[in-house]
Amino acid sequence: MDASPTPAAAPPPDPETAAPQRAAAPGPAAPPHPPAAPGPPVFARAPVPASRTRRLATPVGILAAVAGAFAYVGTVDPNESGHYPVCPLLKLTGLLCPGCGGLRSAHAFIHGDLGAAFAANAIATAGYFLFAAVWVLWLVRAWRGRPLRIGLAPAWWWGVGAVLLVFTVVRNLPFGSALAP
């Protein structure tokens, strides 16, 4: 017995996708019609809003990680040698990078000595306050169900890079020794 399908068993062609059967007419062929735009998905659902707990999970988790890192730095003094690795740029070239003194700054910041924190690394200390402000904004927006979107133009990023470069150069020059840790 032959297992091939018979013409009667074949499904009929879909009228929307099948090309119409026309008799060959003399003259130029008509351009083909563009395919119809697909309709909405069959199982489309409206997005389900995330619960408040789920929206707050990421900012709270980030705060927990940062608080854990600061707690460690506050407990293990970076002013004592042997606890943290030495900056590779400082070790190889003798030049201070923009992050040099950041751990000492964090240690002083944790202990409430803002003067020592700024003296160790002014940029890092300003970054702690900036992080706190952005985190509070993120938490408030997550609480209200709005996403945090901070769109900075490339000029801002170039500006941040320029500030870090100037800070690095000045702290390595004799007149900028006040910025050195």
Rank of each mutant, 00 (worst) to 15 (best):
L173I: 00
P5S: 11
C100Y: 01
A57C: 00
P20F: 05
D113W: 09
P35S: 11
G176H: 03
Y128P: 02
P40T: 05
I123E: 00
A162Y: 01
A8I: 02
R55N: 09
L139I: 03
P40F: 08
A122C: 00
A178F: 14
A24P: 10
R22C: 03
L114T: 06
T6M: 07
A44N: 01
G68I: 00
C100E: 05
P147F: 06
P15H: 14
L164D: 04
G151D: 14
A67T: 01
N172S: 05
N172G: 05
A23Y: 08
I110V: 14
A155S: 12
T53S: 12
V48Q: 14
R146L: 10
V140F: 12
A120T: 02
V66A: 02
T53E: 13
P88C: 03
D113Q: 13
S105F: 07
A23H: 10
A25I: 04
I150K: 00
H111N: 14
G112N: 02
A106H: 05
T53R: 15
G115N: 10
F70A: 15
R22A: 14
P13Y: 06
V136Q: 06
V166I: 15
N172W: 11
A119Y: 02
H111G: 13
G74W: 13
E80F: 04
D14N: 14
S81Q: 12
A18G: 11
A106D: 09
G159F: 09
V163I: 01
G112D: 06
V169K: 08
R45D: 11
A23P: 03
V76H: 12
V73H: 08
R144A: 02
A142F: 12
S51C: 01
E80H: 06
A10T: 06
A132S: 10
T75E: 08
P49F: 01
S81R: 15
A25K: 12
T125F: 02
E16T: 07
M1G: 15
A25V: 08
G27W: 11
S51L: 03
V160E: 07
V86T: 13
L179K: 04
P59E: 03
V73R: 06
A69W: 09
P26A: 13
A71V: 02
V86E: 14
A18S: 13
G127P: 00
A30L: 15
V76S: 06
A106G: 11
A108N: 10
L95N: 10
F175Q: 09
R144F: 04
G101P: 10
P40Y: 07
G102C: 00
S51N: 04
T58K: 13
L173E: 06
C87F: 05
R104M: 00
P181W: 05
G27A: 05
W158Y: 12
G115K: 13
P28Q: 10
L139T: 15
T6C: 05
Y84D: 08
G161N: 03
A8H: 11
D2G: 01
A9S: 15
V86D: 11
